[in-house]
Design a protein around this nucleic acid. Structure first.
Lengths: 306, 306
DNA sequence: TAAAAATACTCCATAGGTATTTTAT
DNA sequence: ATAAAATACCTATGGAGTATTTTTA
């Protein structure tokens, strides 16, 4: 009979490239794993792998079966997850993926709240760009994402948490430095510094620039907002910063002028995203309340008399 | 560790209502099954069933887990199905559900073709009304449906095969009996005989009547087209018959006049429906060709010289 | 020749069997 | 009183181990 373990074995083989490595990953010996693979192939009457090739080769039939095996394992994983959470909501491990343009600015203030409200929740944080996060979410390597919902996320459930307006950041001596407000058109002709490829913030800022007639500063690409801010302060150009990033010491230290936009204010929407099939949707909605700017009631609760 | 068999056991318990019946269905003894259920409950740390109740009771947590267990089993089933079909397309068992207003009229002519073209295909036929068929399809009890695509089918993949026009059937002495063609409006005021509830043909005919201003014959409900036809011939009223049903001896025997409609001709579309996740979609499309009126080439092939 | 996979065999964990007791209508 | 589930105990299948040979880059 087909067993879940056999399916774990064959997916491990595809992931690791060799039987030996797969066996290690599954904490079994190579012959044991080989025997199970053989048995599955006999049962299905399909050869899954082409043996004796340098990196193991998956047959066409194998690819089909592997895909279905992953579906089975995902369903089993969700069954276990559901069982865990039937006992204790917002407890146990929760693997949260966060984009780099949010993590350093939001988490320092929010995480203490979360720990206070849900002491049994063991948050595991992963900071990557949206595309990688989505990949990991679908693989089942992550449970929940905190991302900009404008980015392409595929077929996931989402929960908007708050809007994050963009501000124009300029050096202190810039022609726009003392404006109360700017409109898109004021950007025309400016050289704009942006993040490197893959950041969703980059593409969002780019589309604002396109509307405004501003152009990207030739081949300069910042690897993070914290390297970008001193560059602007130093007079290398201007940039768009999400409001979220302007409330931190990094932004206050850099000698920047931040000018809000007139309506319609360009913005991004930060929110949660999870697999539609996740059994923890309710938990995520509860957790989401702590990530909204309004609900900072964990602190007040902590200061109540006892 | 969780096993597939454990999941089969718990779903069997929910289906059969008692541990004993489930054990029988799974071809194991009751204590063996009990032990596995207990072990799964221990592993998940969730009580799935409320023991010692007359018909066994599923706990709320149990319902959640049962649903996920079914998903796992469905995925496993599809993996096996995929494996079988990687070897031999259109071979092995294929469970086909057909509605009662199609089965007796189409299958007698088509099935010989199918057997001729695909001798290794073992068709298992199930004749039920659409709602029941869809239920069985989703449960995995059927592989493929042959239905009217106008009926509500839920989230399935469909393949239209042919249009089946409705004809007006009247007794030989009816005022419309010798008309070349009728239009909707000609039906106004007629007493129309219809099938009993649940037949998709009934609701389709009803909507034609609604447009035409005809009304259903007070509380007469035929249980099949073959009982309906003699009633009309006997002068009890008129009815709408799908063209498909008028080509059979049953229709020819009954002394009916069949009058086509003017354009736009009211019709239904007969087609296949299957689970979106089914690995046999390609096979179904191949098989579909044999169900289309044009492609009657199996016979010609059978008569070729050898 | 140096990896990795297959083979040969041994072992033991556990799924599943039989016999019986307990429990709930 | 009766039918079903739990318990106790036993058996044996097969998953996984060690040792070794075969294979191909």
């Amino acid at each position: 009979m087909t067993t879940i373990r056999q399916l774990e074995y064959i997916t491990a083989i595809e992931e690791h490239g060799t039987f030996q490595a797969a066996a290690d990953a599954c904490h079994v010996t190579q012959p044991g794993l080989s025997a199970q693979v053989r048995q599955l192939e006999d049962l299905l009457e399909v050869r899954l792998f082409e043996r004796g090739r340098k990196p193991i080769l998956v047959t066409p039939a194998g690819r089909e079966i592997l895909g279905r095996a992953r579906q089975v394992l995902a369903a089993v994983g969700e069954l276990h997850e559901a069982a865990r959470n039937l006992g204790q909501p917002l407890a146990g491990p929760l693997r949260l993926g966060v984009i780099p343009t949010v993590a350093p600015f939001l988490l320092p203030t929010v995480l203490p709240e979360v720990r206070g409200e849900h002491p049994d929740l063991r948050l595991e944080l992963h900071e990557k760009q949206t595309a990688r996060l989505v990949e990991d979410l679908e693989r089942g390597a992550l449970d929940l994402l905190l991302v900009a919902l404008e980015a392409p996320l595929g077929d996931v459930a989402t929960l908007p948490l708050f809007d994050d307006a963009f501000l124009l950041a300029v050096p202190p001596d810039h022609r726009l430095a003392h404006r109360k407000r700017v409109r898109d058109a004021d950007l025309a002709g400016e050289a704009v510094l942006l993040l490197e490829d893959g950041h969703c913030l980059r593409s969002q800022a780019l589309s604002v620039c396109a509307r405004a007639g501003a152009s990207e500063m030739g081949d300069f690409r910042a690897s993070s907002l914290s390297t970008l801010m001193p560059m602007v302060a130093g007079g290398a150009g201007v940039t768009l910063l999400p409001e979220l990033a302007t409330r931190t010491s990094a932004a206050l230290d850099a000698d920047l002028r931040l000018v809000p936009f007139t309506r319609p204010v360009p913005k991004r929407t930060i929110g949660f995203a999870w697999r539609r099939t996740s059994p923890r949707a309710e938990e995520f909605e509860t957790l989401g309340m702590l990530f909204q700017p309004g609900a900072r009631n964990g602190a007040s609760r902590r200061t109540r008399s006892r």
